[in-house]
């Protein structure tokens, strides 16, 4: 595989469209992200943030447009290639979606064993290292039902990290959490960012977004209205709608 040049984006979206029934949810979204960048998606409920993130790894198949990883367009009809692509794009869900029948360790290990075909003993070692990284080595043998929400989300991050993704997609990773559990997940995400992970994250936690992101993208009704550095978008947006939304969300969310 050709190594991407530093100037080339890791991931590029061109004109992504998606409709559910007659309702157009994404109306041609363009986006690209470079290695080590962190971009945060904000926008009102129903803007299409989740749909966009799910389109990126084809959990929702776009009706139109093109997605390329390191310059290689992805063809979702080639199932093998799609599985290979998905290994390189980690996904973090709002409600964790840990495999309920597996321990924390099992959740992290299963991708290594089944998808990467790694030997069980090596997979175990790697999975433990990933759990250690998110501070959960002691909970390796607990089942999802025995973990707190924050711990579950950290396991799901470890599960994605184990596959060495080139990009991580995070869909409101802390919105299902009690306020006192948000911090531990934010800390893990912050460390990931510091370690150079490329990330696209939807969130309503404005304070966190400001501290973390190089760029904030404001979306509404399936289009990107405005994007730019956090201070510009959050405090000094060009567009009236962006200003209104940011004023409201800053007032509500404070400095999460």
């Amino acid at each position: 595989m050709a190594k991407a040049s530093p100037s080339e984006p890791v991931l590029t979206l061109d004109g992504i469209r998606k409709s559910f029934g007659s309702k157009e949810i994404l109306c041609g979204v363009d986006l690209s992200i470079h290695r080590g960048q962190i971009k945060v998606l904000i926008g009102p409920s129903g803007a299409g943030k989740s749909t966009l993130l799910q389109c990126i790894n084809f959990l929702v198949v776009p009706d139109g447009g093109r997605i390329s990883l390191e310059g290689q367009p992805v063809d979702p009809s080639d199932r093998k290639a799609l599985c290979r692509y998905r290994q390189q794009v980690g996904m973090i869900f709002q409600d964790f979606n840990l495999f309920d029948h597996l321990t924390a360790l099992g959740n992290v290990e299963i991708g290594l064993v089944r998808v990467k075909k790694m030997k069980r003993s090596m997979a175990r070692e790697r999975a433990l290292a990933e759990l250690e990284r998110v501070g959960l080595a002691r909970h390796a043998h607990q089942y999802p039902a025995e973990l707190s929400g924050g711990q579950k989300q950290r396991v799901s991050i470890a599960r994605a990290l184990a596959l060495d993704p080139k990009v991580m997609l995070l869909d409101e990773p802390t919105s299902a959490l009690d306020p006192e559990l948000i911090g531990e997940v934010h800390a893990v995400i912050r460390e990931l960012g510091a370690a150079g992970m490329t990330m696209i994250m939807a969130t309503h936690q404005i304070g966190f977004a400001r501290a973390l992101a190089q760029e904030i993208i404001f979306m509404e009704n399936g289009v990107i209205i405005e994007q730019g550095p956090p201070d510009q978008i959050l405090d000094d947006a060009q567009c009236q709608r962006t200003r209104e939304f940011c004023a409201k969300i800053t007032e509500l969310g404070g400095h999460g």
Binding site: Q54, L59, R86, M91, F93, F99, H101, I110, A160
Partner: peptide, 25 residues
Amino acid sequence: KGQVQAAQAIGMTRLQTILHVILPQ
């Protein structure tokens, strides 16, 4: 549905998802 999505998101094939995630549950 989230179980299936999570399995797909880590690159499992349909068959792997059924055998290793859905059926055990």
